[in-house]
Design a binder for these strands. Structure first.
Lengths: 337, 337
DNA sequence: TTGTAAGCGTTATCAG
DNA sequence: CTGATAACGCTTACAA
């Protein structure tokens, strides 16, 4: 079923059919109706590839996600969902590419196959090969997260550095003197994962600024890792009275370790961090935390990408999110010594 | 950058370039090398759309996911990840379509836009418009989950009916006489969501077969809903000593409600069900449960789809998974009355 | 108001 | 062993 067939059945030329489809040229009402009737009858829709070939644009966005081998976190999933949703609202399709390493066939297909008008990249490292690759291609792209030197690219990111600093200040204000940072996994941090590094930087600065003692630890992205890390912390550093964290998936484990040691939150121990709302609300008591606005960020990433596609030479823009810390019930002054 | 440019620079015809790319025709070693050098230098890769147009196939699979508005469950996410991964292994790209209702533009684009060689559908209802729609198109498709009458389509699914029945039998064997089913949300069940209905059927049959009393309840897919449902159950039906569930996301809430009522698992109360391994392992004590093999199922869905694409007229196949119930530590005989 | 025809970047057939 | 050339299905000047 192609446009020629419709034209034949309606007794018109292909261009006329094309014009009733696009509305880019006036078509007399009778012919328009006749053609439309045929289209409806055969449920015809133009071949998207042929159209893309002719128009030079695909109406498709590429979304590069971390490989599935490591389970996606809730936050990553939130980004995927919101990007797809925002794209759908703009009548754009999304082509998914799971890719980690740099010799990635799927990623290369996306970049050089001209199947997409632009790309959104997630899980950005401070030094990121994929960003380098995309920069040297002419393909518009936007990153969720940012490299160490993001100038010249469009991005959205969460201000982990500022947020964690604010958490530490909040704890210091309450009187805590010994605080800890529960970071993401050691592998991630070693690989130069931005949020891990920036959270640590914010933590270190704030701790120094307030004259606290701070200990930072890496922790896998799941409850068992959180439990292990936390119980180790509680036994090796009993003086610590509060933690800040960016590792939401570890929270259930953190909770269990605290419970196992008989430390009541917030009476004996305070917890604060950045985490998706449902993790925070599932904590007992509800966790004071900055909620990462994944929905908004995904939509904004799409918007920025559409800008870049429309005006590739315009100055890139970015959006650094610093969501407020929702005070719930997990922080209090430290217990008397 | 196109094939003509490569041909020009290498001083050969476009067809020769095409043939060194595809290897479908012998090319003399010197010219091959010359052409390859130009290709490498310019990092040329053929335009996937043009190729798709010419070849009549897109090397792309469509994956229809539930709309992002409702957060995807871990299981759904597992399917998405495994499908994308399996497709990537076969050098196929995946086009995502978030679609719920039937007037869905994104879904229609996938079905009629000829941008994909086949489609994988998730979250199948017993009566599913999308399946109906795909059946009447000529597009090969595979469903993860199945309709009430799946004959004639290829699918993979989990045998919720059999699995929940086995759970009930297990509880009956231990001596439980009053058991409950914690199902998925009322909306989902009302919408004809297959697993909800099949789990209920399996539950009802097994309960009847063993002469037990059974109560079934719907429960939203999150911890707060689980907590609410469970504490209601414990107060209104104090005689119930065990639950079976297919609602993994409710488990943390179930746990909390049990703890709040002072019911110790498994001494006072048994819990069993079907849930992803990490949910089961996060339960305290670890939950006896059948683990849904999402990774395997996603890969199998892709394999079945490739079969259908290769041989559209061959008999459709399916694969009903009945993973074993991993006995962990959450079931025991009921407490003495 | 409509039709003709060129061309988007490929691949494959047919000659040479 | 290689080169023209005709499709694939569409859009869009340019003609009429």
């Amino acid at each position: 079923m192609n446009i020629g067939e419709i034209a034949r059945r309606a007794g018109v030329s292909r261009s006329t059919v094309s014009y009733v489809l696009s509305g880019k040229r006036a078509v007399s009402e009778p012919t328009r109706q006749r053609i439309q009737a045929v289209i409806d009858e055969l449920d015809y829709r133009p071949n998207a590839n042929a159209r893309a070939l002719k128009e030079g644009r695909t109406r498709t966005l590429g979304l590069v996600i971390p490989p599935a081998s490591q389970r996606l976190t809730d936050m990553q999933l939130g980004f995927v969902a919101s990007v797809v949703e925002a794209a759908a609202r703009a009548d754009l399709d999304v082509l998914l590419s799971p890719s980690g390493g740099d010799h990635d066939r799927s990623f290369e297909r996306i970049v050089t196959g001209r199947r997409v008008d632009g790309v959104i990249l997630m899980e950005i490292r401070l030094e990121d090969d994929r960003v380098t690759r995309l920069r040297q291609s002419r393909l518009p792209f936007v990153t969720i997260g940012r490299t160490a030197e993001p100038t010249g690219t469009s991005w959205v990111d969460v201000d982990y550095e500022g947020l964690i600093a604010r958490c530490v200040h909040h704890l210091a204000d309450l009187g805590h003197r010994h605080v800890a940072l529960v970071n993401r996994s050691a592998e991630l941090v070693a690989a130069g994962y931005g949020p891990g590094h920036r959270a640590l930087a914010g933590f270190s600065h704030a701790v120094a600024e307030r004259g606290l003692t701070g200990v930072d630890l890496c922790c896998g992205d799941d409850a068992p890792a959180g439990e292990a890390a936390m119980s180790r912390l509680l036994t090796t550093r009993p003086e610590v009275t509060a933690v800040a964290t960016i590792n939401e998936a570890a929270l259930p484990g953190v909770q269990r370790a605290l419970a196992a040691e008989g430390r009541l939150v917030p009476r004996d121990f305070s917890v604060v961090g950045v985490a998706a709302a449902h993790w925070a609300e599932d904590f007992r008591p509800p966790l004071s935390a900055a909620d990462v606005p994944t929905l908004e960020m995904g939509a904004e990433a799409v918007a920025l990408l559409l800008e870049r596609i429309a005006a590739p030479t315009a100055a890139p823009r970015h959006h650094l999110y610093q969501p407020p810390i929702s005070l719930r019930a997990s922080t209090a002054p430290p217990p008397p010594p």
